[in-house]
Structure formats: structure tokens, C-alpha cells
Design a protein around this nucleic acid. Structure first.
Length: 408
RNA sequence: GGGGAGGUACCGAAGCGGUCAAACGGGGCAGACUGUAAAUCUGUUGGCUUAGCCUUCACAGGUUCGAAUCCUGUCCUCCCCA
């Protein structure tokens, strides 16, 4: 008998359904919850992740937060590091087949992933597994046997396959194996519930299908909406550069949060903040009535969640100062320069690392994106001619500041 | 296996012997503006010791005063037929 306390089914449902976009099938979820409650046996909740790019952002947090809720309800959660499936790469069209990661990379990425998820998940309640553990030993025969449980017609129903097929884009045969591999994970782990974004629906359903083929109880597919990124149009993703990373500096987090379009204020509150559920109706109203302040509140809460109250306060001050009042921040990196040589502006900008090339520096200067002590410098041939010890504030672009210190 | 069409900068896509560092759109960056790092408008978007030079149009050779553009080979993709 496991010593635990799983709350009543209704209590659980309320939490579980919060923010979900689809639960397939809801009735079976209720059945599983009832069974679990009756026997006080935790459900096995599975979430797969791709260890290729271990930089977590708020988009990931939507599902991780859901996972956390299951932990808090007393269920058993399993985080799969998809080190094996990463070799295939989820066939989303833009993805190309990825080179196999080395053992070291996998371990390093997995570790980094775990550390990052620990900001959201309860690390003590998270079972970590690597799917190479069971996928790697499978031989050709095993794969053929697995593949025989799915049909081509059903495979190309998946919308990105359909789209790519119609567009005459390449679809490598091995990409069909990705959903199967992910489904095999469910079979192997005998999962009761698999979490995923709504874009994962196909893969999650394959898991359900395979479990049935293998005579197991079928997992519930619980799907969360995709968080729209800061650009307000596409899903949050590192490759669209519209993301807010959970490791982001407080000031960046705050600023980026403020840059979202107004109509995302409410969804963000709902999906990625820890604000109490009862407060959401009020937020919904205020997001429309007073977007400015509500958005600042959102930015503050997010920053607080990942960096604490003090940092959140500082981030707010920083934003008000540098962006609203166009003032100079307190802290900025310092660069020490000799007074004897007369430095070229472009060189100095390049040395700060604010730009990737001197051409970029030249462009910024020419376009008026560079100031020294608040004064716009537009001559790319500008040279410093400093005799005495002194300091200057260099601003490059919208928000890169550096203190130039001239000294012998 | 046979026939056809292609591989161009971050992405999509023009160009088909010189005027091409390469049109146009998206994305990025910057300026103006703004409650905002939003929207909009404008500019910009290979590198460098920048009035000039260097390296790019799948890869390797070749023709030519000169090639992204022509030829040969290689690799890769798509379509039709089998």
C-alpha cells in the first residue's frame, strides 16, 4: 500500500482541465482518475522532451506547469529525455535529419534540461529516463514488427506530412518512425497519461494506438494550447526568436513580456503565471480596460516567478528608466581603453562584442544607432582623442550600453 | 530502371555571359513615433584595414578578356512512368 493522498476526482479534474485545449478521451480520464482514487495508486504521467536544444522558454513552461500540477496531485511523473528520438528529429518540415548526438552531449543536455525544469517541476518527484535505454537495443526485426502496427494511409494523415507531400517536399522514410518511437515510449513505460502541446496530437494518438495493439490500457492524451510568442503571431519558439527564456535575465524577461501584443495578456496570465485561478476573471477585464498596467503586472509576475521579488522590482525600475525615460541604466559592462592610442569608433564597438562584425557597427553608426554620452555619432570614421582619464557611456542600438573607461 | 524539372544569401523566390554582393517578399537590425522591446512609416541587411579590396549563387574542374549565368563530372531534391 502506497502512502499517499490523492484528492477526490472532482478536485483533480478542476486542476487538470485548467488551460487544456483537448483531452482525448475525457471520459476515460475520469475513469482512470476514479480507479486511481479508489486504489490510491498514482497514475503514470509521461512527458517527452527533446534534448537537442536545452533552452527552455515560457512555451515549454505551459506543459511543464501542467506536469507540476500532476505532481502536486500525487501522481507519478516521468520525464523522458528523448536522446534516441532526437536523432530522427520530429518531422515538422523545417527540421532536417539531425546528426546523432554524442553520449557526452546527451548527458550534458539532459542534465541542463533537468536543471531548467527544476524551476518548474518538483525534482524529487520527477523520474528521469532516457529513451535510448529501450529504443537503442531494438533490432531491425523489432522495428519491422513495430512498424507493422501502423499504416501508411494513417501516417500521412498527419498534417505536416500531408502538407509536405502536397508541396513535393522531401519526406524521408525514417521520419515515419518518429511517431512510432514516441509511441513505443508509451508502451514501454505503460503510461496512463501523456502530456503534450496540441501540435503533438498525432504523436500522442499513435502512442494510444500502439498501446491498444499491445494489449495495454490506453493512455489519455492531454493537450495544452501552443503559447503564442512575443511577436503575437507564431507559436513561441527559439527559431522564430519570439520567445522568453526561463533563464533570461530579469530585465530582458520584463522587457520582452511587455512587448507582447495586448490580446496576449490574458492567455499569458492563464497559461504561464502562477496567479490564482480565482483572479483570472478580473485579469481578463483589466487586460482590456487597462492594458498598460496589467501588462506591467504580468511582466513583474513572470520575472518574480523565475528570479524573485527583488529582481522583479529592479527589472521594472530598469525598464522605466532605460526604455520609457530613455535614461542610462545603473549597471553596464565596462571596457577599459588606453588614452594614448586614438581608437576608432567602429573598432571599439566591435571590441565590446555588441555587434558580430565591423560592417554591422558601421551600419549602426551610419543609421544613427550609436551614441556617446547621449550624443549621436553618425560618422563611421570617428576617432576618440582622449588625453586624460575619463569615462564615456556608449549606447549601441536600442538597449546595449557600455561604459568606456579611458585610462593609462 | 526510364523520362523530365531543379539546387541562389537567414527563409521564400527572381536572375540565365559583363551594368550582380545578386531584383522582390518575409524575417532581422536601426531611426522616427509610442503606455510598450507593440502597430505604423523610413532606412538597412556577406566580410574587411570601406571613395577601395576580399569571399559568395550545391561541390569539383573547364571554356571565356569576363560565369550565378555556357560545358563536363559528382552529390542532393522533386515530378511522371515502371
Amino acid at each position: 500500500m502506497i502512502n499517499m493522498s490523492i484528492p477526490s476526482v472532482n478536485e483533480q479534474l478542476e486542476v487538470i482541465e485548467r488551460g487544456t485545449v483537448e483531452i482525448v478521451p475525457r471520459v476515460e480520464l475520469i475513469q482512470k482518475l476514479e480507479q486511481s482514487y479508489k486504489t490510491q495508486t498514482p497514475l503514470r504521467v509521461k512527458l517527452g522532451c527533446d534534448p537537442t536544444r536545452p533552452d527552455l522558454h515560457l512555451g515549454h513552461s505551459v506543459i511543464l506547469r501542467k506536469m507540476r500540477q500532476f505532481q502536486d496531485l500525487g501522481h507519478h511523473t516521468i520525464l523522458i529525455i528523448g536522446d534516441f528520438t532526437a536523432m530522427i528529429g520530429d518531422p515538422s518540415g523545417a527540421n532536417k535529419t539531425r546528426p546523432a548526438l554524442t553520449r557526452e552531449e546527451v548527458v550534458a543536455n539532459g542534465k541542463s534540461y533537468f536543471e531548467q525544469t527544476s524551476k518548474i517541476l518538483n525534482p524529487d518527484k520527477t523520474e528521469i529516463v532516457y529513451n535510448s535505454e529501450w529504443l537503442s537495443p531494438m533490432n531491425f526485426e523489432d522495428v519491422i514488427r513495430l512498424a507493422s502496427h501502423y499504416t501508411v494511409a494513417r501516417m500521412i494523415e498527419r498534417d505536416d506530412f500531408t502538407r509536405r507531400y502536397q508541396n513535393n517536399d522531401t519526406i524521408s522514410l525514417h521520419e515515419f518512425l518518429y511517431p512510432l518511437a514516441q509511441g513505443q515510449d508509451s508502451v514501454h513505460l505503460k503510461s496512463d497519461i501523456e502530456l503534450g502541446g496540441i501540435d503533438q496530437k498525432f504523436n500522442l494518438l499513435v502512442g494510444r494506438h500502439l498501446q491498444k495493439e499491445f494489449g495495454q490500457s490506453q493512455q489519455i492524451c492531454l493537450m495544452m494550447p501552443l503559447l503564442v510568442g512575443t511577436d503575437g503571431s507564431q507559436k513561441m519558439s527559439k527559431s522564430y526568436d519570439n520567445y522568453i527564456g526561463i533563464d533570461e535575465k530579469p530585465e530582458d524577461m520584463y522587457g520582452k513580456a511587455l512587448s507582447i501584443p495586448d490580446d496576449l495578456i490574458y492567455p499569458y496570465f492563464e497559461l504561464v503565471t502562477d496567479i490564482a485561478h480565482e483572479k483570472l476573471p478580473d485579469i481578463r477585464k483589466r487586460a482590456v480596460a487597462d492594458p498598460r498596467n496589467t501588462k506591467h503586472e504580468l511582466a513583474w509576475i513572470l520575472t518574480r516567478m523565475y528570479h524573485g521579488k527583488d529582481k522583479a522590482d529592479q527589472a521594472r525600475t530598469y525598464f522605466e528608466r532605460t526604455v520609457i525615460r530613455k535614461d542610462v541604466p545603473d549597471d553596464m559592462p565596462e571596457f577599459i581603453l588606453k588614452t594614448d592610442s586614438n581608437h576608432g569608433l567602429l573598432d571599439v564597438i566591435k571590441k565590446t562584442g555588441f555587434v558580430p562584425s565591423s560592417n554591422e557597427a558601421r551600419r549602426l553608426v551610419t543609421q544613427g544607432g550609436v551614441t556617446l554620452d547621449g550624443e549621436k555619432i553618425t560618422d563611421p570614421r570617428y576617432r576618440f582623442d582622449i588625453q586624460k582619464d575619463s569615462e564615456m557611456i556608449l549606447k549601441v542600438g536600442k538597449r546595449k550600453f557600455g561604459k568606456l573607461i579611458f585610462r593609462n
